[in-house]
Design a binder for these strands. Sequence first.
DNA 1: CTGCGAGTATACCGACCTGTGTGGTTACGT
DNA 2: ACGTAACCACACAGGTCGGTATACTCGCAG
Lengths: 198, 198
Amino acid sequence: MPRRTPNPHTAAGERILATASELFYERGIRGVGVDLIADEAGVTKKTLYDRFGSKDDLVAAYLRRRRERWVDWFSARLAARVAAGARPGAERVLAALEIAEEWAQDNRRGCAFVNAHAEIGGLDHPGNAVVLEDKRYMLAAFTDLLREAGYPDAEARGAQVHLLYEGAIIAHTTHAQPDAFGTARAAAATLLASTAAR
Amino acid sequence: MPRRTPNPHTAAGERILATASELFYERGIRGVGVDLIADEAGVTKKTLYDRFGSKDDLVAAYLRRRRERWVDWFSARLAARVAAGARPGAERVLAALEIAEEWAQDNRRGCAFVNAHAEIGGLDHPGNAVVLEDKRYMLAAFTDLLREAGYPDAEARGAQVHLLYEGAIIAHTTHAQPDAFGTARAAAATLLASTAAR
DNA sequence: CTGCGAGTATACCGACCTGTGTGGTTACGT
DNA sequence: ACGTAACCACACAGGTCGGTATACTCGCAG
């Protein structure tokens, strides 16, 4: 066989992915058909299938793209805070949670990976790996921030902060708590102060 | 008008709701058609629409049923722990998190309300109210547990524990953390000890 | 015994779904 | 100038979606 899915990185492929990304996030994966995506992208279904092979693969590409964007944006934003004087440890963790809140303001449908995981039934879906990748990345981000500050229990505390982060996204998106990220930051501050005071 | 959706509480209606509840949770709301539900319940589509009016209303009924079941099970389980000697405050909060973990073991697709919220696009969907209801209930459950123990900052600490609870469910179902609920309990213990020690 | 609600079976509707196929056109590199 | 990749337009397949319609049977309470 030549190539199963040749190379999506063409002008039309880019448009398809951009369109699909917005539609998938806004209306849900199952709520969007490939016809609509092709139409909105100004492309025929033929081209879509030539570029991406299947809807499932397009979904996986969407998740990868979204993850890429988030990682770039998040790390750049965090680096800026570091450059602006955020000291290692608690200060940087709280900054990370502030950045997450900032992002959540513009993404009212919540975490794309949680949503995708909810919509994707089968475990064999090519998108599931990306979902897990994202969650593990954020977990590692928090533990790394604590480890670099010399916290002896960076693993444990990082995991705890990670739960606060995930919970805040849910509580924010479902409107369960009006100031979910503020709550998360308060909790994180207490947790990290408790360690530092030891 | 006589009655928009007459009365779902008939023998067939019960079978429909039971079948729909399992299918909706296991395969996702959008992943299940009304034809399948009717078939599995041994009922015609006519009957299904006579009982529930629309798929959206059936979805709302599913969420209400699921919430009812969870509230009953959770509160009974918690009452048993109280009867077994769990003291007010941290002990009961940790017990609640243990109960949630127990429940999560048997519900591998995670929180039905989070999943539903992810699948339901429009804010006008009759199921959205139930989702919010559940989240607010669990938030109140934690704050109540702390208030009854005389915590001065029951509101704030309860909200923080609620985030840990929501985060643990996400981290557990996405396999982001192997022992998400253990992590949540450790964090909750630290938070509540921090208050008590003050 | 009669009236009625509940449920049955079957067929249908228009719209939508993912995916495939056949051709024709444009643009670009060699 | 020629080949090739990318793209277009159009049509179609086979199936599912939510929802409706007609007409029949059954059990039971008045």
